[in-house]
Design a protein around this nucleic acid. Structure first.
Lengths: 221, 221
DNA sequence: GTCTATACGTGGATAGAC
DNA sequence: GTCTATCCACGTATAGAC
């Protein structure tokens, strides 16, 4: 599967995400008109990602955010209770995006190798589609327990596939936990070092294929 | 080479680092007695790493730092001009540690495969020895141009080895820039996700060997 | 729903005693 | 060299007009 294909199957836009956030937080968001709210939420998220990418969420002031969105300080506080609340909203949503996807993909395919390839690629493609969410979640949430448990969760999926593959004599024996962990690291690389791959002129598809190639070389009997 | 061996060859302690920092910054540091200065600098760095690991450097207040070091606010400012200055000092030193090592190691060995293994392992071992410095540098300096150029630099060393190996028919042809980049990502994993490998009970040596195994499987003809 | 004006607290930094 | 006390700016958050 290539990235283009993936985007057609996985039809979710940034607007959809903002709408989801709006509906999940209608109790705290003071805006009544959905269209207005969704549009502004999108503006807010983009601004947060932009500023946080450069200097981190903590260093971003509400005045920064006000300037970048073009909205006043007062308006912003109609969309979230406080800066900390905003952080929580983004993290929760980022988490939801990742979780939903992984579960979906890991159910498709049966053969271990095909399954492994599909899971690896799906995660990279998803992180490409929502790169700012992934980057932000990684950078700003590092020590939250929730994030660690999510890492464990997604890693377990990979480990299970490797173990199943070994039983079917498709994969070599070895420390599958460790292999799974390193695969995860390689996937993360794509959204953590975007600037590098832009400079190297490497596309998502190239990156994903290269990574799959490395995993195959190491795991296959 | 194993980690134990490495530590014997590379005989540098945290004290040595603090002393280096002291000597490099004698113009701005107001303390005259070296012993006092070096001891307190070490305390300061450890405190910075501890607090920043949990909430990031920006979120760390000078009062946090004062409490954790047991030194007063006033005293702290005798060691650096300001919070921003402190950040710069740590980053510069972190950078120096990495740079010095890599250059040293890349000169040893001649055969591409041996050289590749040595460079990969040395970096992992070094990052283990000075893990807080590496973690801090990665997390707090992500978008500084200096850091990007350093990434390029260390990556180039790996790329060159791969290219040389291909010419000697030891390594398969391929996108060596991309491979080098992914190797770097795998190395970084060791100090970025320390908590995970502690939980998995994976030692530095195991990790390094596993990684070398993956690279060999992929690169060797 | 969005704005401006403003209150209030926190945090970086310094002065000056010891 | 280190401390306490204090200054001042900046940033979060709210009130209330439009």
């Amino acid at each position: 599967m290539e990235f283009k294909e993936f985007t057609k199957i996985y039809e979710v836009s940034n607007q959809d995400i903002s709408r989801e956030v709006y509906r999940n937080n209608q109790n705290t968001i003071r805006i009544k008109k959905e269209i207005t709210a969704v549009n502004n939420l999108e503006k807010i998220f983009n601004a947060v990602f932009y500023i946080s990418y450069k200097k981190g969420f903590q260093a971003m002031s509400m005045r920064d955010l006000s300037q970048k969105t073009g909205m006043s300080l007062g308006s912003l506080y109609a969309y979230f209770k406080g800066k900390n609340d905003l952080l929580g909203i983004i993290q929760t949503q980022g988490w939801a995006i990742i979780k939903k996807d992984i579960e979906q993909v890991s159910k498709s395919h049966e053969a271990p190798l095909e399954k492994l390839k599909a899971v690896i690629k799906a995660h990279i493609f998803l992180s490409e589609l929502f790169r700012p969410w992934f980057f932000f979640t990684f950078m700003e949430a590092r020590n939250i327990a929730a994030v660690k448990s999510m890492e464990d969760h997604t890693q377990k999926i990979l480990t299970d596939i490797l173990v199943a593959g070994e039983k079917q004599d498709v994969f070599k024996p070895g420390n599958h936990h460790l292999t799974a962990s390193i695969i995860k690291a390689m996937q993360q690389e794509w959204y953590l070092k975007q600037w590098k791959y832009k400079k190297l002129n490497v596309s998502v598809d190239q990156f994903a294929d290269h990574l799959v190639g490395m995993v195959e070389a190491f795991c296959l009997v």
